[in-house]
Amino acid sequence: MSYRVCLVCMGNICRSPMAEVVLKSTLADHGLGDLVSVDSAGTGGWHQGDPMDERAAAMLAEHGYDGSAHRARQFLAGWFGQVDLVLAMDRDNLRVLRRLAPPGADVRLLRSFDPAAPEGAEVPDPYYGDSEGFAEVLEMVRAASEGLAKHLANTLR
């Protein structure tokens, strides 16, 4: 049985799908691809079925990642029984998820796994900005994914 991680932002078209693609790649690089399944969702459902934001997909492609298969979906409270770790991109989404979560659910901020990030650090929403915001998100997601992969390697092996 694999360990399951779900990455969550607001609409599931920018941050969380970028994090999903990067985390899958990072876990594969660490030999954990068969032990950990990764997906993503949004706390809101208005983008359900939509592909990843073009700017997010372009930023990923520019760095050798493929986000073309992504389709947005909304996180549902019933999923807590199917996932081991839910990672929010920011405190607003963390609050929403914790309200939905049953007692004992593991819900945290993604950047809590980045040892260089300050406590409570968020992945900012790049949607209303330019490509620089997407580049910053990619770097934050990469750092947190490395930290999470190391954590899971120690936990699952």
Rank of each mutant, 00 (worst) to 15 (best):
D66V: 00
G104P: 03
G31I: 04
S40T: 06
D90S: 09
G67H: 09
M140A: 08
V38D: 03
L94G: 12
G104R: 06
M10K: 12
L152P: 00
A58M: 03
L148F: 11
D29K: 15
V137W: 01
C14S: 10
G49K: 11
P115G: 09
D130H: 09
A72G: 11
G120E: 15
A28S: 05
R157K: 10
S16W: 05
A117Y: 07
P51I: 15
S2I: 00
W79M: 12
H30I: 04
L97F: 09
L110H: 08
E62T: 12
V107N: 11
M59C: 15
V137Y: 03
V96C: 13
W46I: 15
R95H: 13
R15S: 09
A153H: 03
P51L: 15
W79G: 14
L109F: 05
E20W: 07
L109A: 02
G133E: 01
L110C: 11
D53R: 04
Y127G: 14
G42V: 00
L97C: 11
D53W: 00
P103S: 04
C9T: 09
S25P: 01
N93A: 13
R98Y: 15
G133W: 04
Y128S: 13
H151E: 15
M89Y: 14
V137Q: 01
A117Q: 07
Y3R: 04
